[in-house]
Design a protein around this nucleic acid. Structure first.
Lengths: 203, 203
DNA sequence: CATAAAATCGACTGATAGTCGAAAATAAAC
DNA sequence: GTTTATTTTCGACTATCAGTCGATTTTATG
């Protein structure tokens, strides 16, 4: 009963590494089982399909990030600090940067899309709670917080996606849009600049 | 010299129909060549790969829509009418509704993404010119028009995508966001409601 | 020890995109 | 009109892949 769980986790870990380094579409089941040293049948004893395995790999990836984000929400920080912290917590770490690159390769569209959707469902409620604090404090002035947060995430994921390089004008307009969507005073969301510029400076 | 072009067009037409009705990923090269009555080698004489053929099919699809949109831009209409018209011109027609459905199926992510990208590059400049008229008329008040137009398109394509049903609140917030992104007076963009609701009523 | 359940094996299937060298059709040159 | 080049067509073949299945081994249970 326990051995199965361990084996499954081991397979997920191996697949995770391979998906990240070679891409999901470019990693064959045959390669996974070879790396794991198991037979085809064993693989399909644990996973119904390659795609179902991908779902589990993604779930594993997001679990940790969700916890980090919740911790930031509970911490004793100002609203802007919380927002920065939550977004930073879902940003790929240095060591995980290859994931990010991998995700933006065209052959990983499916994986990218799945992660994006699930990350949004995970992060929208958390960010919304931070934004609600902001409304109470008079920092923001708007209704329908989750819908607005979601829009901001949609924009940022598309604009700062890595595959289309963004100009300073795009950042300016994005900050302006963010402030207006949330009903914040001009300049309030300037801290976004730090979040957005950093990743590009690295490479 | 001419015969080749005709054959290629014929193949693109056949593939277009099959991609639309069955989806790109679910249409095999074998099926295409069977429908066309040609051999494998002939297919690869005209196309380097299946994906390269997809690019050409998409190009064919978008050509017509670009012309329609440009015609609307040149027409003698008010700025809001032009915007509605341009967006309507890139909306799938009744007969082409299956394309739209096909595109939103998960197995067609690649095709969806490719079309989206190329449609944006096509439509952003056209819509921007209409929006610039709007600025001149005092309807809108903002800089960096193309960037702002692009953001609005990003939002709409994600929100009203078919696969996640949108609530009235989403529409309200989207309209609000659109007005604020363009610096328009409240109510100015209410006409969006007609564009957004219509497609859903159909089904 | 015997029996049931969980885990592993690997040969096999069916489908796929893409290759290749030969053959046929067409055009150009003489 | 015949020969030579070029374009077009052919289809058998390869390689790769996800997924199946019945047999076999390992582990737990009574």
């Amino acid at each position: 009963m326990k051995k199965g769980e361990r084996r499954k986790r081991e397979l997920l870990q191996i697949a995770y590494g391979m998906f990240v380094s070679k891409g999901y579409e470019n990693t064959s089941v045959d390669e996974i089982i070879e790396a794991a040293g198991i037979a085809k049948g064993t693989y399909y004893y644990y996973f119904q399909s390659k795609e179902q395995m991908l779902e589990e790999v993604i779930g594993m990836m997001l679990e940790a990030e969700a916890e980090k984000a919740e911790a930031v929400l509970r911490a004793d920080l100002s609203v802007p600090e919380k927002i920065v912290g939550i977004i930073a917590s879902i940003q790929p770490e240095q060591q995980e940067r290859t994931i990010d690159e991998a995700l933006h390769r065209p052959e990983n569209l499916l994986m990218h899309d799945k992660i994006r959707g699930r990350l949004f469902d995970l992060i929208v409620p958390i960010l919304s709670r931070a934004a609600e604090d902001g409304v109470r404090e008079g920092l923001f002035d708007c209704d329908h917080i989750p819908e607005r947060i979601r829009m901001i995430l949609i924009l940022s994921s598309d604009l700062f996606d890595g595959h289309n390089p963004y100009t300073p004008a795009v950042i300016d307009v994005f900050i302006d849009a963010t402030e207006k969507i949330l009903g914040a005073r001009p300049g309030t969301m300037g801290f976004i600049r730090a979040l957005v510029r950093a990743p590009q400076d690295v490479q």
